[in-house]
């Protein structure tokens, strides 16, 4: 059964530009996004900042109306059946804000339990359960203002799953959390899937998407530019090998010469202090080190390595393709 369905979702923001003569300016944050998430799946929306991830998620959780297109969650329309959708989904976002600072974790949860109609009797056991699940048991009487970033994030998750929703939307949940905390959070997310929930996760951390997601949609500039399992994405964009070459002072002319070497699919450059790192995606069955180095004759060349493609390579290729 399809739990989340987005069909050609679009969202335009109207802002104004100009200091003296204000002209309306339409910004297209999401331009025709379509995807579907199956029951029990962990689906990732991966993209750079400003790609439209949060706007997409806000349309799905009924906080924003789509400018056009359709979205259904658990078979219910997010525009016309907003209240029914709200009852059955959980929403968690990353960041420091969004908690009642002066209240304890327990009171924060009690309040949202009321808002989500968790009955008085069920509340006590359910709150203990979620506190246990996110590892805040024992600290729940303290005021949130004294919480660390990681504890706040776990409280956000506890709040989001309090009413035992069937679908959980997680908007960049690990942003700004330290590595150990982020690993624990990822475990919590994996536990949600194990408990049979459907999860939609947005992130811009590649390894996180790689480690957690069953399927990923890469979103850039409001459009989906690639979709599939992490393995398929890696294979689709760079089925082959990646050769990395450290060089000094290469220019665009050299890059365009490298790009036309037979068997080369894409070349990107990362600037690192004085040196540059050329990331060359090659066809799998070719050994291209020698012809590449031939084109770099006359430049100082450092370390040369060859490796399997990662999701990051796929991502960079997908996101960079539109530039």
């Amino acid at each position: 059964m399809l739990v989340i369905e987005a069909v050609d979702l679009r969202r335009t923001y109207r802002t104004t530009t100009g200091v003296i003569r204000r002209r309306p300016l339409d910004v297209e944050a999401v331009r025709g996004v379509s995807f579907a998430v199956e029951q029990g799946e962990l689906f990732g929306l991966l993209g750079p900042n400003g790609a439209g991830k949060t706007t997409t998620i806000k349309m799905l959780i009924t906080l924003l109306l789509p400018t056009s297109g359709d979205a259904r969650v658990l078979g219910m329309d997010v525009v016309s059946q907003a209240r029914d959708v709200r009852k059955r989904i959980g929403y968690v976002f990353g960041g420091d804000r969004g908690l009642y600072e002066r209240l304890s974790a327990r009171d924060n949860l009690r309040y949202f339990a009321e808002l989500y109609g968790v009955s008085g009797k069920a509340q006590r056991t359910r709150i203990d359960e979620v506190l246990e699940l996110v590892g805040l048991k024992g600290r729940e009487q303290e005021r949130v203002e004294g919480y660390s970033r990681g504890m706040r994030q776990r409280l956000h998750i506890a709040r989001g799953i309090l009413h035992d929703p069937e679908v959980v939307f997680l908007d960049e949940p690990t942003i700004g959390v330290d590595p150990v905390g982020a690993r624990e959070l990822r475990q919590t997310i994996a536990d949600l899937i194990a408990a049979g929930k459907t999860v939609l996760l947005t992130t811009h951390y590649m390894f996180e998407a790689d480690a957690l997601c069953d399927r990923i949609a890469v979103i850039a500039k409001g459009e989906i530019v690639g979709e599939g399992t992490p393995a398929a994405l890696k294979a689709g964009v760079a089925e082959g090998r990646v050769t990395e070459i450290e060089v000094f002072g290469v220019d665009d002319g050299v890059l365009s010469r490298l790009r036309v070497v037979d068997g080369v699919r894409a070349v990107t450059v990362e600037e690192r202090d004085q040196k540059q790192l050329l990331v060359v995606q090659c066809a799998a069955d070719r050994e291209l080190t020698a012809p590449l180095l031939a084109q770099l004759d006359g430049f100082e060349v450092g370390r040369v390595t060859s490796r399997e493609p990662t999701l990051e390579d796929a991502y960079v290729a997908l996101v960079g393709a539109g530039d």
Binding site: I61, L63, Y91, F93, G98, L115
Partner: peptide, 8 residues
């Protein structure tokens, strides 16, 4: 945000 996302 969380408040408006609730069905209350």
């Amino acid at each position: 945000g969380p408040l408006l996302a609730s069905p209350a």
